[in-house]
Design a protein around this nucleic acid. Structure first.
Length: 328
DNA sequence: GGTAATTACCGCCATT
DNA sequence: ATAATGGCGGTAATTA
């Protein structure tokens, strides 16, 4: 369980309401459905007076900077101007909180507030692609990673563009509460529990992470061999564990039983093949590890509520549309 | 779509 | 003692 449940989001004048909202949604929304003690969420105002946001909205925060010093986790949404130094009192409060063991997570340009504390010196960090060069120029001691969704250094965490803040937040929840609960939160937000494809998440010191787990190698191996017959027993053998132990550990870390996860990965692969290749369904099925097309159809339909051929045609005719978004 | 054989899942519990 | 392991068996799901 987490040592200090107090999560504080810092709100500034001209704040980014979306990123601020991400923090509130992830940490502030009551989760009575979860059998666990959730976070205490408070908003701290970094500037005097009502805080303006886009469209004439104003926000007034409930607490002052003392909450930052007491916080277990501090969230820094996008800072208004990379060229403007953040308020010294805020910087000082964050540094003091960190010294006392608090974790700080920044979203997008919120990294500039965190960088000003010096806590990122010598460490990897990321931000929105529009700001990576500026961050590197302003803070040469920071190892700027432009091509990842987020970076976790253990007590300091940074994320790329706005929505990557969700990925980082879910990662933190996974650290605190495990994959199963993080998956529940993701499900309620209707976002994927872990974003697939493209940018890998960069984790430097996985406190509780897949990178350190003996399962990680097996997961990677399985993803490389999706087209071949895989059983839970063979995965367990690869991980040097008894099937029972493997399945139990897998469920605890990934949030799904091994075979269900396998099927999901295979459907995801089939989906990519349908999107990017003209291969017949039979070939797609075999390439994604379903021996017969009927098996692919069965799982495809259950997850995406549409048939593979229908998915492909709707994907091809309406790019960016909602293939499978039927009447459900 | 239905069927039969195989495989997965999970609670239980002895063992480490 | 607690915590993790792994075998067993019944039920559920998957597969061809």
């Amino acid at each position: 369980m987490i040592p200090n449940r107090l999560v504080v989001a810092v709100a500034y004048d001209n704040l980014c309401a979306f990123e601020f909202g991400v923090a509130a949604e992830l940490f502030g929304l009551a989760r009575p459905e979860l059998e666990t003690s959730w976070y205490d969420f408070h908003v701290v105002s970094a500037d005097p007076g009502p805080l303006r946001s886009l469209g004439g909205v104003t926000i007034s925060a409930s607490t002052d900077l003392s909450a930052v010093r007491a916080a277990g986790t501090i969230v820094l949404p996008g800072w208004r101007d990379p060229g403007e130094p953040p308020p010294p009192a805020v910087v000082e409060a964050i540094r003091a909180a960190h010294d006392r063991g608090a974790r700080i997570m920044s979203i997008c340009s919120g990294v500039f507030v965190l960088a000003a504390t010096g806590l990122l010196d010598g460490l990897p960090a990321t931000t929105h692609w529009r700001y990576t060069e500026r961050l590197a120029a302003g803070y040469p001691a920071i190892d700027v990673r432009p091509d990842v969704l987020y970076v976790d250094n253990g007590t300091t965490m940074t994320s790329a563009g706005s929505a990557a803040g969700i990925d980082l937040g879910l990662h933190l929840i996974r650290r605190d509460h495990g994959a199963a609960i993080a998956g529940e939160v993701a499900r309620r937000l209707v976002v994927p529990p872990q974003r697939d494809g493209g940018q890998a998440q960069f984790i430097r010191t996985p406190v509780v992470g897949l990178a350190a787990s003996p399962l990680a190698a097996t997961v990677d191996w399985a993803l490389e061999h999706l087209s071949e017959p895989l059983t839970v027993a063979s995965l367990a053998r690869h991980a040097n564990m008894a099937s029972r132990t493997f399945a139990r550990r897998f469920g605890a870390e990934i949030g799904l039983p091994p075979h269900q996860w396998l099927v999901r990965q295979r459907v995801a692969l089939a989906r990519r093949l349908l999107e990017t290749t003209p291969a017949p369904i039979d070939d797609v099925a075999r390439a994604s590890g379903f021996v017969t097309a009927a098996t692919l159809r069965h799982h495809f339909r259950r997850e995406l509520r549409t048939a593979p051929s229908r998915y492909r045609s709707s994907f091809n005719t309406s790019q960016g549309g909602r293939p499978g978004g039927g009447t459900g």
